[in-house]
Computed example of a mutant assay.
Amino acid sequence: MIINNVKLVLEQEVVVGSIEVIDGHIESVSQSLSQLPAAIDGELAYLLPGLVELHTDNLERFFTPRPKVNWPANSAMASHDALMISSGITTVLDAVALGYINDQGGRIENLERMIHTISESQLQGNNRAEHFLHLRCELPNQDTAGLFESFVGKGSVAMVSLMDHTPGQRQFVNSEKYRTYYMGKYGMNEQEMASFEAEQTLASKKWSHRNRLSIAESARARGIPLASHDDATVAHAEESASLGCAIAEFPTTIAAAQASHDAGICVMMGAPNIVRGGSHSGNVAAKDLADIGVLDILSSDYYPASLLDAAYQLAKMPSNDYGLEHTVQMVSARPAKALSMHDRGSIVAGKRADLVLARPAQDRLRVDQVWRQGKRVF
Rank of each mutant, 00 (worst) to 15 (best):
L139A: 01
H326P: 09
P360T: 11
K206R: 15
P37T: 07
S306P: 04
M163A: 02
L355M: 09
M188P: 03
T64H: 12
E238Q: 12
P140I: 00
G350H: 10
I347E: 01
M77L: 13
R66A: 15
V275L: 11
I115S: 07
R334H: 13
L202H: 14
T233V: 06
Y312H: 12
A338F: 01
R344I: 10
L8V: 04
V15Y: 08
A39Q: 01
L324D: 09
M193H: 11
H80E: 05
R220E: 09
P167R: 07
I347K: 01
A271I: 02
A290K: 01
L243D: 01
V6C: 06
A310N: 07
A353R: 02
T252V: 11
S87A: 10
H209R: 13
A73S: 15
T180I: 14
I215V: 10
L93T: 11
Q369P: 06
D41K: 07
S214E: 08
L289W: 02
T64M: 14
I2H: 04
K7A: 08
D230E: 09
S218P: 07
T166Q: 05
A203F: 11
E197D: 12
Y181I: 13
A45C: 11
E112L: 11
V267N: 00
H25Q: 15
T91V: 06
V234H: 03
I254G: 04
S30Y: 11
G17S: 09
D301I: 00
S346A: 14
R66C: 10
N189H: 08
G99N: 00
H229D: 00
E149S: 15
V14K: 05
M330W: 01
Q258A: 12
E238T: 14
A336G: 02
S28C: 14
R212A: 13
R136Y: 03
R352H: 12
A305I: 11
R61N: 05
E138L: 05
Q104Y: 12
P140F: 03
M159S: 00
R107I: 14
D23Y: 10
Y182W: 14
H116V: 12
I115K: 04
Q142P: 04
Q171E: 13
